[in-house]
Simulated scan of single mutants.
Amino acid sequence: MAQVKWSVDPTHSEVQFKVKHLMITTVTGYFEKFSVEAESEDENFNGASNIVFTADVNSISTNNEQRDTHLKSADFFDADNHSEVRFVGTRYEHVGGNDYKLHGDLTIRNNTKPVTVDVEFGGTVVDPYGQHKAGFTVTGKISRKEFGLTWNAVTEAGSVVVSDDIRLQAEIQLVKQA
Rank of each mutant, 00 (worst) to 15 (best):
Y30N: 15
K133D: 06
V88T: 06
L106E: 04
V162W: 02
E14K: 08
Q177P: 11
I172G: 00
T25H: 11
K18L: 11
E146W: 13
T116I: 15
N81M: 12
F34T: 01
H94Y: 09
D75I: 09
V115A: 06
E41T: 09
E41G: 15
E84M: 10
G89I: 01
S59D: 02
M1H: 14
F31V: 05
I108M: 09
T11I: 06
N64P: 07
E65D: 14
S159F: 14
F45Q: 04
A157Q: 14
D56H: 04
F136E: 02
K176P: 07
R67K: 11
N46G: 05
L106K: 08
A178L: 13
V162N: 03
S159N: 14
S143Y: 15
E14L: 10
S143N: 14
F53Q: 03
E41L: 14
A153N: 08
E43S: 14
Y129D: 14
V115Q: 05
T69K: 15
V57L: 04
V154N: 08
S83A: 12
N46A: 05
V115G: 03
Q3D: 15
A2N: 12
Q173W: 07
Q173M: 15
R91S: 09
N152E: 13
I60G: 02
A157G: 12
I108N: 05
F121P: 01
N110R: 14
F53D: 03
K133W: 04
E84V: 13
D118K: 11
N44L: 10
E41V: 09
N46P: 04
V160H: 12
K101A: 03
E84H: 12
